[in-house]
Design a protein around this nucleic acid. Structure first.
Lengths: 157, 157
DNA sequence: CTCTTAGTGGAAATGGTTTTCATTATTAAT
DNA sequence: ATTAATAATGAAAACCATTTCCACTAAGAG
């Protein structure tokens, strides 16, 4: 019978179960929102996008799920300095590996993918060396540039 | 007459005045603490170190002064993911330019200075290119590695 | 020394995130 | 299918770093 969705839940479901977590509607909803968005969403952003379709999923669940996702390594948690964390799917996202320019004036975020290869090379080298020297198992890194976008640069007195 | 301190207040005083700010006891105390410490201090850390000598300087003043210092570019404000900001003097510090390894287990911070030259080179190149492409005036950057220190790596199940 | 106003402290407010707890829903066992 | 064990949930309350308010104080120009 056509029209029946055999699976609304991708490989995440298996991943969740594999980690000993249950697969719930809320988690599916949150991953759906994250996977459809190309932006850096705050917990509240996600809540607002989940809410129309699933009105009885609360903010608390969003936070709890995001924590789990971050721990599982599926989601990146960012701090752009405006007092609220931003979340972004790592794998499964259509976006390629990227970093951020952050405007200190208006907090606008620009994603960039330039120099990623060169950066990767350096990061790899650093990671190897630092791991050994400081006996530290490095799992991830963050690179961010801060400054002023054209609009905010003009406005400055 | 020997023994008289001609100036407890270094060039910061001039810098403050130059920016239109007044030079106050609180600001001197905070800069004194920052300049004597080699660590990444939270606002409360600073408060606790200022307090014995200057008991009537409040946390509010600490926060306000740190904001100013950050804006003036004298202090770096870091987020290591534990819910409180950390502050570190940039210039005037005995420490050289460095970045951080952050343990996701115990939140221990390791400073490192390796690869700074190579990094600077890449950063410079990126900065030039990104500035042009995105019309963004880049003023600073952050590089942080996350992982697990030897102790926390062992503890993991 | 005086006046203007930036700076201050304490208390209260703020706001993102976390905790509590009684209820619900998922999953494994029957 | 039914049930039993317990993970997950929502709402409200708690938390806690930071900010705001406001009456008071003190820096520094004149």
């Amino acid at each position: 019978m056509p029209g029946i969705r055999l699976s609304t839940s991708p490989w995440w479901q298996a991943r969740f179960r594999g980690c000993g977590y249950r697969w719930t509607l809320g988690r599916e909803a949150i991953l759906e929102v994250l996977s459809k968005s190309e932006e850096h969403l705050s917990a509240e952003d996600i809540y607002l996008r989940v809410h129309p379709k699933y009105p009885n999923i609360g903010l608390t669940t969003i936070y709890r799920t995001l924590d789990i996702l971050t721990d599982m390594g599926l989601v990146w948690k960012f701090d752009f300095g405006d007092g609220r964390a931003r979340y972004e799917l790592i794998e499964g996202s259509k976006k390629m590996h990227h970093h951020h320019l952050i405007c200190k004036g208006c907090n606008r975020i620009v994603d960039y993918t330039e120099f990623i290869e060169e950066e990767k090379e350096l990061v790899k080298k650093m990671q190897n060396s630092l791991s050994k020297k400081y006996n530290f198992k490095i799992t991830s890194h963050i690179i961010q540039f801060y400054g002023f976008c054209s609009k905010c640069d003009k406005q400055k007195d």
